[in-house]
Design a protein around this nucleic acid. Structure first.
Length: 673
DNA sequence: TGGCGGTTCAA
DNA sequence: TGAACCGCC
C-alpha cells in the first residue's frame, strides 16, 4: 500500500498532514509536479521561480535525511502526471494539502475524480489555514463579506486551530526507481545574474523559514506596531515568501505568536500586545484572502463590487511604463517601484502607496498592477495580491473609499520623514534637502540646482497632478454611476433578454452533482478532533449562491466569464489550446470540464497588441485586459494586449455583456442579508 | 471629570 | 470622510 504525497505550496516536513498521512500509510513517493502553464497568465515570475528552485532543493535534502527523496516532474497537466506516477509505481493512495486559488480548486477536484476513478484512494488536508473557509460563517451560516467580522469570528471560533504536527521521524520510501524524475528548470541564463543578487538577502526553504520565524518572534515582533509605519525598517516578519510556499505552517506561526501574547499580557506589556494583535491581523488578512478566493473564485480578475465594472479605467501604456520604471515624478512612489524592481520586495506600506497611486491617480486598471506585482514580487501570491489590490481599488465592500486619493507627498513625510528611503532608491535626488525631498516640483530653482536636479530631465515632473487626478476621478465616477444606472434601467425594462441561454453562459458552474461530500473518512468520524482536520476539500458552488437568491457578482461572472475572460488573457503563453483541450477530454468527464476555470489560456498573440498600442490613452471598461505575461526567457515586455474589439470597448460593453445587468450592489446585498 | 477641538488613521 | 483618541481647559 504505497502512497503518493503530492507537494505543492506546502514545501515543508513539519506540520504537513498530507506527508504524515502518507508516512502512516506505508511507503511514500514524494512528488512535486511543475506545470506552470496550468496557471494561465499567473505563472510564477522570475523571483518566485528562483525561490521555488531553492525551496525544493531544501525539501529534497530533508526528505533524503528522512529516508526518501523528492520526485520532480515537468508537466503541462498535473493530473495526467499523477496518473502516470500511479501507473508506474503502483501507488494506491494520494495525499495532498488544500489550495484555494481558483485554478487549484478545479485542478484538485479533477485530480480527485480522475484518480478515484482509477481506484486510487485520495485524501486531502488543511495545511494552509487556521480554519477552512467553509467553517467560518456568520450567525446565519453565510460567508462574511467584511474582513473585520471575519477575523473576529476566527479569533472566537468554538475550536482552536489545530496544533502543528511534528515532522515524521522516518519515511519509508517507495521504490523510486520505478518512477523517473525530470530535471526542472526554473531560471535561464539571462536570469541567473539577477537571481544571484537575491541570494544575498534571502534564504528560501523550510528550515530557513523556521529560523526567520524564530528571529522575528524573539526580536522585531514586540516593536511591530511601532515600526510598521516606516518605509524601510527591517522590522517586518519577512515571512511572506516562506508562507506563500508553505515552508512554514501558519498554524505554527499563530501558536508561537499567541504564546508571546499571553506572556506579554501577563507582564502588562501593552505595546507588545498591540504588536501581536496587529501582526495576527496580517495573518488574518492572509486567511481572508483564501476565504475570498474560495467564496469568490473570480476575485483575482473581477471587482467584487458590481458597479466597479463600469469604471472607465485609463488605458495608457505610458503611465504604466512610467510607474513600472519609477519615473512618475512622485519620489515615494518612484523609490518604491525601484526597490521592487531591484529586490523583489516592498514594505507593506509602500505597496499600499504605489498601488493606490496606480489606481487612484493614474487610474490604470488594477489588474495590470496586480499582474506586475505578480511578476516581480518575491512573495507573489494570487489570493493575497487580489485582496490587496481590490482593497486599494475600493472594489470590496469594506475597501477604501473609491473617491479618496492619497497624496504621495504627505505619505512621504509620514512614512519616510527624513527622506532616507527616497534617497536610497533615487540617487538623482540624493542631494535634495528633506524639506523638498517629497515634492521637488515645489523646490526653488536654486535648491534644485544645488542638488544637481533638472526636473523633466534627470528627474521627471509629476506625471499627473493630484488635483487633475481628483477631478478626473470625479468625472470617471459619475460616468460609472450613469452606466450603472443605465444598466439597471435596462433590467427593469426587460431589455436584458436572452441571458444565459447557452451553456457557454454558465461556464463556471459546478453542477450540483459534482459538489464534494464533506466526509470521506467514515472511520474517523468518531474522533471529533480529527474529523475537522481531515475534512475534505470543499468546492465553491454556483448553486448555493443562486439558491440564496443572491445575484452578487460572482454568480454574474459565472454567466459572463466564458467569453470575455478568454479574450482578456494575454497571448504569449505558448500552449496549443486545441491540444490541451484534447488531453483534457481524455482525462476528465464532461461534467467537470470547465472551459473558463481550468486553463485560462491565451488566444491572442503579440501581433494583436501592437495594432492597439498606438492609441495611448484609450479607455475601456472593466480593466478587462492585462499586460502580456512575460515568458521566463524575456524581460517584462513593454506592450500589452488591447481589448478584443479595440477602441470601442467602452461603448460596446453593454451590448457585449447584457448579462451584467444582473449585478446588484454588493454592499446593499450584504446589508439586507 | 467632562466637554471640546485637533490629530490620527483607516483591511 | 468619520470614528477613535488625546490633551487641554
Amino acid at each position: 500500500m504505497s502512497s503518493i504525497v503530492w507537494f505543492r505550496r506546502d514545501l515543508r516536513v513539519e506540520d504537513n498532514p498530507a506527508l504524515l498521512a502518507g508516512v502512516r500509510a506505508g511507503p511514500v513517493f514524494a512528488v512535486f509536479i511543475w506545470a506552470p502553464e496550468e496557471e494561465g497568465h499567473y505563472q510564477p515570475g522570475r523571483v518566485s521561480r528562483w525561490w521555488l528552485k531553492h525551496s525544493l532543493a531544501l525539501l529534497d535534502s530533508s526528505l533524503r535525511s528522512l529516508g526518501t527523496c523528492l520526485i520532480t516532474k515537468r508537466s503541462t497537466d498535473s493530473v495526467s502526471s499523477l496518473l502516470q506516477i500511479v501507473k508506474s509505481t503502483g501507488a494506491t493512495q494520494l495525499f495532498f494539502n488544500h489550495l484555494y486559488d481558483p485554478i487549484s480548486l478545479v485542478r484538485d477536484h479533477r485530480a480527485k475524480e480522475v484518480l478515484t476513478a482509477h481506484g486510487v484512494a485520495v485524501r486531502s488536508f488543511n495545511a494552509d489555514l487556521l480554519y477552512e473557509p467553509w467553517d467560518v460563517n456568520d450567525d446565519n451560516g453565510r460567508p462574511f463579506t467584511t474582513f473585520t467580522a471575519f477575523w473576529e469570528k476566527c479569533l472566537n471560533m468554538p475550536f482552536d486551530p489545530e496544533a502543528p504536527l511534528l515532522p515524521p521521524k522516518r519515511i519509508i520510501s517507495g521504490d523510486v526507481l520505478t518512477c523517473t524524475t525530470d530535471v526542472l528548470v526554473f531560471e535561464d541564463e539571462l536570469e541567473k545574474g539577477s537571481n544571484a543578487l537575491l541570494a544575498r538577502a534571502w534564504s528560501p526553504g523550510w528550515s530557513n523559514a523556521d529560523k526567520a520565524l524564530t528571529t522575528f518572534i524573539n526580536g522585531p515582533l514586540i516593536e511591530y506596531s511601532k515600526n510598521r509605519r516606516k518605509a524601510d525598517s527591517a522590522t517586518t516578519s519577512f515571512l511572506s515568501p516562506h508562507l506563500h510556499f508553505g515552508e512554514v505552517s501558519v498554524r505554527k506561526v499563530f501558536h508561537l505568536v499567541r504564546m508571546k501574547q499571553v506572556l506579554w499580557a501577563n507582564e502588562g506589556n501593552k505595546a507588545g500586545e498591540e504588536s501581536v494583535n496587529l501582526f495576527l491581523k496580517s495573518i488574518g488578512l492572509r486567511e481572508y484572502s483564501r476565504y475570498l478566493s474560495f467564496n469568490h473564485p473570480y476575485s483575482h480578475e473581477r471587482p467584487l463590487l458590481g458597479h466597479l465594472k463600469f469604471f472607465p479605467w485609463v488605458v495608457n501604456e505610458g503611465y504604466f511604463k512610467a510607474w513600472r520604471q519609477g519615473r512618475t515624478g512622485y519620489p515615494l512612489v518612484d523609490a518604491g517601484m525601484r526597490e521592487l524592481w531591484a529586490t523583489g520586495w516592498l514594505h507593506d506600506r509602500i505597496r499600499v502607496v504605489v498601488s493606490s497611486f496606480f489606481v487612484k491617480v493614474l487610474q490604470l486598471p488594477w489588474r495590470w498592477g496586480m499582474k506586475y506585482f505578480w511578476d516581480t514580487l518575491l512573495d507573489a501570491d494570487l489570493e493575497s495580491d487580489a485582496l490587496g489590490w481590490q482593497y486599494i481599488s475600493g472594489t470590496l465592500p469594506d475597501g477604501r473609499e473609491f473617491d479618496r486619493i492619497d497624496n504621495p507627498q504627505f505619505e512621504g513625510y509620514k512614512f519616510d520623514p527624513n527622506g532616507e528611503y527616497v534617497r536610497r532608491w533615487l540617487p538623482e535626488l540624493a542631494r535634495l534637502p528633506t524639506d523638498w525631498i517629497h515634492h521637488p516640483w515645489n523646490a526653488p530653482e536654486s535648491v534644485l540646482q544645488a542638488a544637481g536636479i533638472e526636473l523633466g530631465s534627470n528627474y521627471p515632473l509629476p506625471i499627473v497632478g493630484i488635483d487633475a487626478a481628483k477631478s478626473r476621478l470625479q468625472e470617471a465616477l459619475s460616468e460609472m454611476w450613469q452606466l450603472e444606472a443605465a444598466s439597471r434601467a435596462a433590467i427593469e425594462n426587460g431589455t436584458e433578454e436572452g441571458l444565459g441561454d447557452s451553456s457557454e453562459s454558465v461556464p463556471f458552474a459546478f453542477p450540483q452533482d459534482i459538489r464534494m461530500e464533506e466526509n470521506i473518512e467514515p472511520a474517523r468520524n468518531n474522533a471529533p478532533a480529527t474529523t475537522r482536520r481531515y475534512e475534505d476539500q470543499m468546492v465553491p458552488s454556483i448553486t448555493s449562491s443562486l439558491l440564496r437568491g443572491e445575484h452578487e457578482e460572482s454568480s454574474l461572472y459565472l454567466r459572463t466569464s466564458a467569453e470575455d475572460s478568454r479574450a482578456e488573457v494575454p497571448g504569449t503563453v505558448n500552449i496549443n489550446r486545441e491540444q490541451r483541450r484534447d488531453t483534457l477530454n481524455q482525462a476528465i468527464p464532461e461534467t467537470v470540464r470547465n472551459p473558463q476555470l481550468n486553463f485560462p489560456i491565451g488566444l491572442r498573440n503579440a501581433e494583436d497588441s501592437t495594432a492597439e498600442s498606438s492609441s495611448s490613452s484609450r479607455r475601456e471598461r472593466d480593466g478587462g485586459v492585462v499586460p502580456v505575461w512575460s515568458p521566463p526567457s524575456s524581460s517584462y515586455p513593454e506592450q500589452f494586449i488591447g481589448e478584443e474589439s479595440g477602441i470601442g470597448a467602452s461603448s460596446s460593453f453593454l451590448q457585449g455583456h447584457p448579462q451584467s445587468h444582473q449585478i446588484l450592489n454588493w454592499r446593499r446585498l450584504s446589508q439586507t442579508g
